[in-house]
Write a protein that binds this DNA or RNA. Structure first.
Length: 426
RNA sequence: GCGGGCGUAGCCAAGUGGUUAAGGCAGCGGCUUGUGGCGCCGCCAUUCGGGGGUUCAAGUCCCCUCGCUCGCCCCA
């Protein structure tokens, strides 16, 4: 293969596919606008330390999945593997939090060095929401509802909301001790991966898919029983609010999530139609992160949604979202003088708001009309040698049946007027 | 990082050791130098991801390599 290719796991998005993407983006923007959530954009590249401190040194993301390199100033830089740490960094850096709670969303590419598979790429795209400075249980549910309603609005069905509580930082620390002690006692019975995680990331052992380990875990101390009374009643509040909003959920006590910063509410929205990578949207509460990154103590909740996975679901739908506004006008011409007039006409019509394509081939009219037909345009404007001399254009309705020559001859302004009347104006 | 599957044209794809690499879509040209959708005709892979080997003979078998893909892992 002599020609150059994109890097493994880095995919091109072609015009044909982008109709769906743009539909998602427009719908999401509208959902955020209604939800009083404002956009924030942060750099794709950050100092490595941000992610190491924010996400956690022991996590897989930081430990083995980051695109990290030294720049010319010998600073260690990393392509962002997720969005939350950057948003929090930006909020701290610009004093946003001293202006009160922040309701923010972001979107764009993320990078993780993993083996690609269905629903997993090295460069992928997320849309995410971060509510900074919101402590109450209803805010957790508000965040979840924004995601849930966005997916509903897009018409994605068959989704499941999985829910768990990781408790407060103290609960988690206490439980961690219990769990490590128990795991140590049963070390020999665990699978190799889980053995490695006993000290580095014991909670993840709970989510092991190894059948033997799972069977054994039935006997392990449970996270739920380690929650303080306050944490438990907080979790109950979240569940009540979800019920009040009519959002169905299932409790998943094994849901711990891979990033260190989560506490209390953790959730994932999954689909059975995505293959092994079933999570479309995942998130949770991260009350400690802002302070950990040097900001004021700030409770927060957020989520991220995988664009590729969402688009995958959408493209499986029977009724794919209506895309691509067709062309209004296709301009056909023949001869040098006509080409200039065709260009001028196309430009004039574009200035008036019409979608116009001009055939630049100079080929036989038969060919040009074939392309005009395929372009999906509603009308064709014809400028041949005779029209060029007379300073007129012939207008032809491409939705009419036959192949008879266009008979309406109009001045350019007359054509504009005729089309303006025929087309619905926004 | 570890397993499985697969690489034939822009896309889909037949071909399972015998030599002229089916077919379809798209594209291009013509029937039709000034008028589209249908139809018909023609063109479009000196070569089967790349390299080496076995053989009289390799797209077909073997080895290596690159890539894609699915899964493990992890997560969006």
């Amino acid at each position: 293969m002599a020609s150059l290719q994109s890097l493994r796991g880095m995919v091109d998005l072609l015009p044909e596919q982008l109709g769906l993407w743009q539909h998602v983006e427009v719908t999401a923007r509208e959902q955020f606008r209604r939800s009083a959530i404002r956009e924030i954009r942060t750099p794709l590249l950050e100092v490595t330390e941000l992610f190491a401190r924010g996400i956690g040194e022991a996590t897989d993301v930081v430990g083995k999945e980051m695109y990290t390199f030294f720049d010319r100033g010998e600073r260690s830089c990393t392509l962002r593997p997720e969005g939350t740490a950057s948003v929090v960094r930006a909020a701290i850096q610009h004093g946003l939090l001293s202006q009160g709670p922040q309701r923010l969303w972001y979107g764009g590419p993320m990078f993780r060095y993993e083996r690609p598979q269905a629903g997993r790429q090295r460069q992928f795209h997320q849309i995410g929401v971060e509510l900074l400075g919101f402590a109450d249980a209803c805010s957790d549910v508000e965040a979840i509802a924004v995601a849930w309603d966005l997916l509903a609005e897009l018409g994605v069905g068959g989704l499941e909301l999985e829910l768990n509580s990781l408790g407060s930082a103290e609960d988690r620390a206490r439980y961690r001790e219990q769990l490590v002690a128990w795991l140590e006692q049963h070390r020999a019975e665990l699978d190799a991966d889980s053995q490695d995680r006993i000290h580095s990331n014991p909670l993840r052992v709970l989510d092991s898919k190894h059948p033997g380990t799972q069977a054994l875990l039935a006997e392990a101390p449970s996270l739920a029983s380690a929650l303080s009374d306050a944490s438990q009643s907080r979790f109950a509040e979240v569940q009540q609010a979800l019920t009040a909003l009519g959002i169905p959920y299932v409790l998943n006590p094994r849901l711990v999530r891979g990033l260190d910063y989560y506490s209390h509410t953790a959730f994932e929205i999954t689909s059975s139609q995505l293959g092994a990578q079933a999570t479309v949207c995942g998130g949770g509460r991260y009350d400690g992160l802002v302070q950990q990154l040097g900001g004021p103590a700030t409770p927060a909740i957020g989520w991220a949604l995988g664009m590729e996975r969402l688009v995958l679901l959408l493209s499986q739908l029977k009724r794919p979202a209506a895309v691509a506004s067709a062309l209004d006008l296709y301009v056909v011409s023949r001869g040098e003088a006509a080409a200039t007039q065709a260009l001028a006409l196309a430009r004039r019509c574009r200035q008036a708001g019409l979608a116009v394509e001009r055939d630049a081939s100079g080929a036989a009219f038969g060919k040009q009309f074939k392309r005009a037909d395929r372009s999906g345009a509603r009308w064709a404007a014809v400028i041949g040698e005779q029209e060029a001399i007379d300073g007129v254009v012939a207008l032809k309705d491409l939705r009419a049946d036959g192949g008879e020559p266009a008979d309406r001859r109009l001045s350019p302004e007359g054509l504009l007027e005729a089309l303006g009347a025929a087309l619905p104006r926004p």
